[in-house]
Amino acid sequence: MIQYLQNNYEVVLTALQQHVWLALLPVLLGFAIALPVGYLAVRFTWLYHPLVNVCGVLYSIPSLALFVFLPVLLGTKVLSPINIVVALTIYTVALLARTVADGLRSVDPLITQAATAMGYRRFGRLINVELPVALPVILAGLRVATVANISLVSVGALIGVGGLGQLFTRGFQLFYLEPILVGIILSVLLAGIADLVIVLIQRAVTPWARFQRGGAA
């Protein structure tokens, strides 16, 4: 395996780079979309159940199906990385919008009431009280979405754009174990590191959560 890495480090590095941004760009986009969507589902309670259902349906669509369906829908080329980014963004939104909504809903109504009674207006209350209190739940969802994205990117290799997934297809075609193993290890490592980074961020921004009952951050 060391031998393989020495001979092919440029290929591996390029694949890794592509993998990182194919996985993380959708996380950022999805998070940015999920925040307002999740909030709306709390603000207008009748939206919550439709949102949960739509998210459930979107999340249950197999990735390969979405990857090959999107070019038809968006008019993009099959080989365009946009398909992967859009598909993973959809998954991220499907996962996070619900998490954001659940997180906001889980805020103790007493806390919200106290904030209102102290004279917070709706937006101030959201930013200063509800979002911070919901943050541990939201960040837990972000961890799941990030790790899932990183492992899903490689399926894209079947339509030609898949970061480390290309090492899998290459190894498979050549009946050659090394690239597959390298790809799996790097993918898992990447997921582990991304997860760890979010945990560290979470510790830093929610120092209070450690003292909550059962809330081992």
Partner: peptide, 17 residues
């Protein structure tokens, strides 16, 4: 109005964060 009126509730409703 609310900022000028103190409010105390059961189990305090403190902001955990």
């Amino acid at each position: 109005l609310r900022r000028g009126i103190g409010y105390v509730i059961q189990s305090a409703g403190l902001f955990p964060h």
